[in-house]
Design a protein around this nucleic acid. Sequence first.
DNA 1: CTGAAAGCGCTTACAG
DNA 2: CTGAAAGCGCTTACAG
Lengths: 342, 342
Amino acid sequence: MVTIKDIAKAAGVSPSTVSRVISNHSRISKATTEKVKRIMEEMGYHPNVMAKSLVSKTTKTLAIVLPRPAEELFQDFFFGELLRGILAHSTKAGYDMLLAAATSPADEQDTISRLVLGRRVDGVVLLSSRQNDPLIKLLAKHEFPTVLIGRTEGHDTIISVDTDNVQASFDATTHMLNQGHTKIGFVIGPPNLTVSVDRLAGYRKAMEEAGLTINPEWIVDGEFLQHSGYRAMSFVMNIPDPPTALIVIDDVTAFGVLRGLNELGFQVPHDISLVSFNNIALAELASPAISSVDISTYQLGYTASHLLVRRIQENLASQARNIIPHRLVVRESSIKEIHKRG
Amino acid sequence: MVTIKDIAKAAGVSPSTVSRVISNHSRISKATTEKVKRIMEEMGYHPNVMAKSLVSKTTKTLAIVLPRPAEELFQDFFFGELLRGILAHSTKAGYDMLLAAATSPADEQDTISRLVLGRRVDGVVLLSSRQNDPLIKLLAKHEFPTVLIGRTEGHDTIISVDTDNVQASFDATTHMLNQGHTKIGFVIGPPNLTVSVDRLAGYRKAMEEAGLTINPEWIVDGEFLQHSGYRAMSFVMNIPDPPTALIVIDDVTAFGVLRGLNELGFQVPHDISLVSFNNIALAELASPAISSVDISTYQLGYTASHLLVRRIQENLASQARNIIPHRLVVRESSIKEIHKRG
DNA sequence: CTGAAAGCGCTTACAG
DNA sequence: CTGAAAGCGCTTACAG
């Protein structure tokens, strides 16, 4: 391992000077700079990140805290895209990303304590947005640079990046209303996630504003869909007054819905229309292609990293809640007239 | 920030003693141990990871190097699962994971150099398995602990974890042969990926051993499928002697195939059977559910981390190539008799 | 069982 | 423009 001292010796200067050359310090002669740089190149010098970190008290590293397994399974399908957005910015800004997972809640606390209080990272991106997250409490207590992707309650000061899920769901429902539907159902997700709460609220709001009453039986629990879309759909489609359209909590669940309906012999969108959320890559490859609210996943990630780095570097208290615009992508699953190509 | 010195002062001992208590050194009296631990607790001490790292010359961190964007898009859909496997083990073994991405090849080299030669990580998990990967060359040259998920050529000594893709594809093809198919086609992936090469080879091998000739027109390019499954399928289904079964490079592409066939009015599996690879979570939610070779994605990740940590800690040269067993999961897309439930 | 000292590889006032 | 010295927070022979 070649160190700054080795370079100093070889170049006939002091370690301080080498250090200054590395950090492009202003008052170093051009001659020395060139000489030192050449020797660093020759000897294959690479600065020791840990040593630098120790004295600078900054790690140039951010942590991403993953939600616990199975908790937000659907996230898997846009996680890659989210990560790509986060990394695109953090790499540009010169930060590395540390991935932190936790199996149990206690574990999670320990991991975070170690990373945050052990000064292993400069900031944290939280992906989980459970209600009353103890992690958020911990990070807020230590005033540690944090940005949340999602929304939480009771912590108004934490910087967050999110979709306006109430509005997104309102828009999706309005789309169905515009298609002439009045009997619109909703396939819900895990009730402890704010995204579930918000999307359900947007749906209710749109129905209410349209003067329509929601039949409680139109609300289907999507958590049981993965393995029994058939049964869940069978129930809702066999009530006396079945919905003619469904708003589905996310694309993955929509696949389950589609499959359940298929098995039951219902045609989408002929017998029933569908619209869902997130617009994962596979949504357009479904048969029929699924209408979905695109939440700009990449942008969510990119912005999260951007806000976090700004918070770290400038200690700038940017506004707490940052909304990334969404956009409904209408495909076959929600329009009656299908024009087949060919 | 409370340091080891602060604790030492408060406990009336030397920093050395505090350090020994932290690392559970043997010859420390029970009394001192308890006292120091109590004070650490009271003062909220957390060891500075960077300082420890600097002296121990070990970072307790691994890096995952992501393939370049768009290069292995399909990976997105099992990336979460892979990551979960890697993290499950690395967390247990006490290692953090650093995520490294790169936009350009040059960038990639720089990032790796910085991480590896700057001693920021103790080992590297490579996800990309391109032919002739320059990264592999670099890591091999420095004899840096590395494990590759996938297969490469020309580096026989690098530790790798992989599916036997030739065999997996052989099995998938055999399954089709057993179903009575003789005109079996293949939808290929990016030709620079070894996984593409291997799966195509397994298919050819099975066909050859069955004494069947492959019509070159049965080989469809899956790279154009995402947005024009229709056109690709239209071509292959309109040749004079169309296939009655298709082996598809991965599940995501299979969705595109399914959609293309759907638009053309072909029924799966009635008109044509399908089988693909990876068994992503959505495969069973397709309509019809897609038969797919399960490659134990989680296990691939878990094993990769396991082998890497062993290599780091014991400097054990485990065998180069480690195969994780696969298993064909037969679903509706490849069996003629469909028994609908209900 | 415990402490003083040296050192990991770097940075940064301070002095010239 | 450059160097000597102190220090970041920890560990670890060495000595007792």
